[in-house]
Design a protein around this nucleic acid. Structure first.
Length: 270
DNA sequence: CGGGGTTCCTGGCCGC
DNA sequence: TGCGGCCAGGAACCCC
């Protein structure tokens, strides 16, 4: 489940591998989630960016078009660059590069998707289009974050996963951030002081995960095949029934708005 | 137009 | 040992 630290780790490895390459061919799984891969053919890769959990591959076709290949990795998606044509049964799309290499997208569960658009035209991707600020954007201050959270009555866990208030959190880092900030995931109102603390803890949790190469629970790998190491550092996510690392209370687990959620009933009391 | 429910997918794991 | 059932979950999509 690649979240911001995992997507950023992939972006950092991928960009030097494919920047400057021209895409001369493509093959895609017939699903509409992948079938637009051939629209990237004829373009040169100008760079690889990231917004929240989306990878943004810059494409340049010369005089006419500045386009963008947008990839969301979903739960099980990953990207590789190989000399040979991919033979993996879970390959959902691949692009032939002019130096003979192949960029390919592996996604066992097909929760990922990709699309080629005119650069910056994100109207076909509602979540990206309405994406909140990057967590490390200096323009995102505690006041703005609090105001944003206060604009809805959704549970805080749901708000964090919505990408509308801050970009890049998934289920793992949402639970980790709320645990660290001692905020109940079902809280519907977060005051200015707690919002301030939460923003700081989101930044700490994400920065630490990034420093440790992301979290590999099962599928996540960077393009060179490396696993993350942050899975050994999780305090809360996936540990229901085990003692809270802070106070020893048994961590609780239940479904909150369709997502499995873990929290400490003592530290994160309502 | 915000919010809620539904759907897409497959492999690992559990229990019988 | 084999296998049915269950679970993981981000975002598009539909509807009110």
């Amino acid at each position: 489940m690649p979240e911001l630290p995992e997507v950023e780790s992939i972006r950092g490895q991928l960009e030097p591998l494919i920047r400057g390459a021209r895409i001369i061919g493509a093959t895609a799984h017939p699903s509409a989630k992948f079938s637009s891969a051939p629209n990237a053919v004829g373009h040169v890769v100008t760079g690889v960016g990231r917004r929240g959990k989306y990878l943004l591959v810059g494409l340049d076709a010369g005089r006419d078009s500045q386009r963008e290949l947008i990839i969301h990795l979903g739960m099980t998606g990953g990207l590789q660059v190989d000399d040979q044509r991919p033979r993996d049964p879970h390959c959902r799309a691949w692009w032939h590069l002019d130096d003979g290499r192949h960029l390919w997208f592996r996604d066992v569960r097909r929760f990922g998707r990709l699309v080629v658009v005119n650069r910056g035209d994100h109207r076909s991707l509602p979540t990206l289009h309405a994406m909140g600020p990057e967590p490390f954007d200096p323009k995102l201050g505690p006041r703005r974050f609090h105001r944003s959270l206060a604009s809805t009555r959704q549970r805080i866990k749901t708000s964090l996963l919505s990408q509308r208030h801050v970009a890049g959190l998934g289920n793992i880092y949402a639970d980790e951030s709320l645990w660290r900030s001692r905020i109940s995931p079902v809280s519907r109102r977060v005051g200015p002081e707690r919002a301030d603390r939460l923003l700081g803890d989101i930044r700490n949790v994400l920065a630490e995960a990034l420093r440790h190469g992301g979290t590999t629970l099962r599928d996540y790998r960077t393009p060179d095949g490396s696993r993350g190491r942050n899975q050994y550092r999780l305090d809360c996510y996936g540990r229901a029934g085990q003692p809270c690392p802070a106070c020893g209370t048994t961590l609780a687990g239940r479904i909150v708005d369709q997502r499995s959620t873990t929290w400490c009933p003592t530290c994160q009391a309502r």
